[in-house]
Amino acid sequence: MPTASATHLVLIPSYDPGPKVYETVAEALRYWAPVWVVVDGSTDGTAEGLVEMARHHADLLVIVEPYNRGKGAAVLAGLTRARAEGYTHALCMDSDGQHPASLIPAFMQASGAQPKAMILGVPVFAADAPRARVYGRRLSNLFTDIETLGHHIGDSLFGFRVYPIAPLFRIMSARRSMRRFDFDPEAAVRLFWEGVTVCNIDAPVRYLRKTEGGISHFHYVRDNLLLTGMHIRLIFGLLYRLPRLLRPGARPRSCRR
C-alpha cells in the first residue's frame, strides 16, 4: 500500500514523454499518495491517457495546461494549486522513467524529519550512462559551488527533489526566470540564499535509450545558452548577497547521506 499524506505530494511535470509516463506514474502511485501530474501542453496523446488513468486512481490528479511553457512553469502551476489545498512539500520527479520511484518514501521521510530543508537527489550513474551527460553537468555544478560559496548542492541539475512549497512559491512568484530548463539549478541556489537547509541524498539515475522509450527534450544550443545566462544572473546575485552570506552562521547547513 502506498503511504498517504496530507502534507507531502509527488509532483510530476510532463511534456511529450511518450508511453513511458504511464509506467512512471504507476510506479509513483505504488509508493505514495497523492501523485499529481502537470501536463505541460503535450501533443503526443499522453494528456488524454493520463486523464483516463486518473479516472481509475483516486490518488492521481492530472492538471492539463493548454500550452507548453516549460518545466519550471509546470512545477509552478502544481505548486500554486498544492499551496491552495494546504500541502507543504512537493517531491518533484521527471516523467521519463529516469528517477527512482522506490526512493520516494525515503526522501519524504527525510523531509518529514527536516521540514525546513530541501532534500536534493545526487545522481549515481550506471556504467552505461552517456559520458557527455555525466561530464557536461560538472560545469553547472562548478558554477553552483561558486554561487553557494562551497559544495553545498550535490548536483545542480538532478530533478528528483523534495521542496518546501512556501519559500519556493515565493521565490518563483517574484521573477520571470526559472520557468524552463533553468528551474532545477536556480531553485536550489535561490532557496539556499534564503536560508533553506540542504540535505543531499544519493539516488540512482537511468538514462533510457530510444529503444527503451527514452525521450529527451534538451536542445543543446538553446538550453546551454539558457543555463549560461542563468549562471551569469546568479553570479551577480551572489555579489549582491555576499556581505550577508559571509557573516558567521549566515549560510544554511548542508548534509550528505
Rank of each mutant, 00 (worst) to 15 (best):
P167R: 04
F192T: 02
A117T: 13
S177H: 03
W193V: 00
F158A: 02
W193E: 02
A166Y: 03
A117C: 13
P204H: 02
A113Y: 04
V124G: 11
P123G: 08
A110G: 10
L139P: 00
F125A: 10
A129R: 12
Y135I: 10
P167F: 01
M172L: 11
D128L: 09
R161N: 15
D184W: 07
R180L: 10
V124C: 12
P130A: 15
D202V: 04
Q114H: 12
F169C: 07
G154H: 03
A117P: 12
F169W: 15
N200M: 09
V122N: 05
A132G: 01
A113H: 07
I165Q: 09
D184V: 15
C199S: 14
N200S: 07
M178L: 14
R180A: 14
G154R: 02
S111C: 14
F183N: 07
R179K: 06
R131G: 09
V196G: 04
P115F: 04
T148W: 02
N141M: 02
R190H: 03
M178T: 00
T148S: 02
A174S: 10
V162H: 12
M172Y: 03
E194F: 05
G150T: 00
L149R: 01
T144F: 01
W193Q: 01
G112M: 13
F181I: 08
Y135S: 13
V198Q: 09
R180I: 07
E194W: 08
F192I: 00
S140H: 12
M178E: 01
E147Y: 06
R206W: 09
L142Q: 06
P130N: 14
N141W: 00
I201S: 10
S173H: 04
R133G: 06
T197S: 14
I146A: 06
T148N: 02
A117Q: 14
F181A: 13
A129C: 14
W193H: 02
F125Q: 09
R131V: 13
D155G: 03
D202Y: 04
M172A: 12
V122C: 08
S177E: 07
G121D: 09
W193C: 00
F158W: 08
F192R: 00
F143P: 11
V196L: 13
C199Q: 11
R190I: 00
P130C: 15
A110S: 12
A127L: 15
R190G: 00
